[in-house]
Design a protein around this nucleic acid. Structure first.
Lengths: 195, 195
DNA sequence: AATATCACATTATGATCATAATGCAATAGT
DNA sequence: ACTATTGCATTATGATCATAATGTGATATT
């Protein structure tokens, strides 16, 4: 190696971090590589030694963001349980900072349009998050994975709605409604036998 | 008027319909005007007599798609109630055809990045949908609007997740989990007094 | 000290982007 | 029949897109 031992790795992680933030903030398709590289303190030409293509960067930075989210979730669960984790997810702070928040809430429809490989990687990381939630559901809950999926879906939808509407008041209402829904879903109660 | 009375209007609606489908299918940022115009049987130049800008087209086609959705929801509610409406929303058919499906599920994160005017228009149409759901909740439901918001959030989140993951089996599971969650949420039951 | 190597910069490519100016052919009003 | 109007096509603009070829300066190895 001619340069510092870890220099390339450092650049690479910087690119990935900048990209993850920009993708979540502005969307994948709307984010150009030139801007990402500039924000990382580099130029156009330095991109391809690090990644094969934009799709490659998307895949890796998405995975990295999801792993970080998994760690943060673990901390929240450890310190305050599901209640705290859900409260943090539907907080105004999270709503107002999509760049550093949940990649699912910021990017799900775009992820659905990515390559099968990217979606397979997303699936893997998603299941990790869902398992983490499932393990922290109340003791007697049935169909833990299913309930956890339903809770996560409600959280994602509520956060997205809160970000999309105009008007802080309504947006706050949506966060509250999402929290109510999530709370209702985790109450242990048997299903599948209505009417 | 020198041309057929309704010719310009016909072209305009064709552009809007094509655009609404393409935006939902490929995303707003990823959809170019040239392609949209070609699909509408016209060329680049014919765009600006009809719309002031791409943002203008986004706003109008989004509103149109939401109004159509509102009508379809009304029909479903009338013929089969909330159960049918929810089942249709989380059906494999809806999952597999985002171009003609729910604009919220296909575009929410991108809508959140649009101008305040566009988001205000989205807010208006969203509230219409939520009111329609609220009116069809079971008789004794409290906080009808809040519950309806929670249900819609869960539906949107589940549909997006089902579209993003790789693997039909898992995707079907997510649809089922979303349906379970929505069903659980519409069971009349008092809230706000846990623990 | 010399040299080989590599991270990154510079610059180039051709496509596509949103937007705009101009041109033309068709028709409605006279 | 003439003419003014207009819906759309043609073509142009400059920006930005992802990707790629080439250049260069710093340094680790020798």
């Amino acid at each position: 190696m001619r340069y510092d031992k870890g220099r390339k790795d450092a650049s690479r992680s910087r690119i990935m971090e900048v990209a993850a933030n920009r993708f979540r903030g502005d969307g994948i398709a709307a984010s150009g590589l030139a801007t990402i590289m500039k924000d990382a303190g580099l130029t156009n030409g330095a991109f391809y030694p690090h990644f094969q293509s934009k799709a490659d960067l998307v895949r890796e930075s998405m995975a990295s963001a999801l792993e970080t989210q998994s760690q943060q979730l673990q901390q929240a669960l450890a310190s305050g349980g599901l209640e705290l984790a859900m409260a943090m997810y539907l907080s105004p702070e999270h709503r107002d900072h999509p760049q550093t928040g949940c990649a699912s809430a910021a990017l799900l429809p775009e992820i659905a349009r990515q390559s099968p490989e990217t979606r397979a990687l997303y699936t893997e990381k998603l299941l990790t998050l869902v398992h983490q939630l499932a393990k922290n559901l109340p003791p007697r809950t049935r169909d833990r994975e299913g309930v956890a999926l339903g809770v996560f879906a409600a959280l994602i939808g509520a956060l997205q709605l809160a970000r999309a509407v105009e008007g802080t008041e309504l947006s706050d209402c949506i966060l509250a409604a999402g929290a109510d829904a999530a709370r209702a879903l985790i109450q242990p109660r048997q299903k599948h036998e209505a009417s």
